[in-house]
Amino acid sequence: MSVVLMTTSRQGDTRWNRLVPVAAQSTFKELWIPAAEALGLQWVPLFEAGFPLERSDLPDVIRELEALRAWCVSSESHRRGILERLDRLIDELNEISKSDHDVEIFIG
């Protein structure tokens, strides 16, 4: 199993249909969850089970991901392994947040 970001255009524009890998399930449990707990994050642990996001949720989710990123940069080297995926996830969510395109967003 794995955690992914999946977006689907509600307007049929396939350029907005994306499947972005976030983490293998084991990596998510071993690295992401402990980091999220250490930081007191609320959204990130929900990624494990999966849930749909509303556009209005994006600022809070992005803020948490940026906090996680900062913590990983300043922490032990094994946590740096998630930075590439974390950066891509933040970039994708920022792109969605700034666009006016109507997409369904699911993380899980």
Rank of each mutant, 00 (worst) to 15 (best):
93 L>N: 03
9 S>M: 00
28 F>P: 00
82 I>K: 04
59 P>G: 02
5 L>F: 05
93 L>F: 08
107 I>K: 10
47 F>G: 04
16 W>K: 01
95 E>A: 13
90 I>G: 04
79 R>I: 05
65 L>N: 05
102 D>T: 03
14 T>Q: 13
101 H>C: 11
5 L>K: 03
71 W>I: 02
5 L>N: 00
38 A>E: 09
91 D>E: 14
63 R>W: 02
98 K>T: 11
2 S>M: 08
35 A>C: 12
102 D>Y: 05
90 I>F: 07
12 G>Q: 01
47 F>W: 15
50 G>H: 15
64 E>A: 10
27 T>Y: 13
107 I>G: 10
97 S>N: 15
108 G>Q: 05
43 W>K: 04
65 L>T: 01
74 S>N: 10
65 L>K: 01
65 L>Y: 02
80 R>H: 15
11 Q>W: 01
86 L>Y: 04
88 R>G: 05
77 S>L: 13
68 L>Q: 02
75 S>L: 11
97 S>V: 02
54 E>Y: 09
83 L>E: 10
106 F>T: 09
5 L>Q: 01
70 A>L: 11
23 A>E: 03
90 I>V: 14
33 I>W: 00
53 L>W: 05
44 V>T: 15
25 Q>Y: 14
86 L>P: 02
3 V>P: 05
5 L>D: 01
28 F>R: 07
5 L>G: 01
6 M>A: 08
35 A>F: 11
34 P>V: 02
66 E>A: 06
61 V>L: 13
26 S>Y: 07
80 R>D: 05
71 W>F: 15
43 W>T: 04
2 S>V: 06
5 L>W: 03
75 S>Q: 11
96 I>K: 10
67 A>W: 09
24 A>Q: 13
33 I>T: 09
82 I>M: 14
68 L>E: 02
84 E>R: 15
59 P>L: 09
35 A>V: 12
80 R>L: 14
88 R>S: 06
77 S>W: 12
2 S>H: 06
72 C>M: 15
7 T>K: 00
105 I>R: 08
55 R>F: 12
85 R>H: 15
34 P>G: 06
22 V>S: 00
19 L>W: 08
15 R>F: 06
8 T>N: 00
6 M>G: 01
10 R>V: 00
56 S>H: 11
31 L>F: 13
60 D>N: 14
69 R>Q: 11
9 S>Q: 00
101 H>M: 12
17 N>A: 06
87 D>G: 05
3 V>D: 03
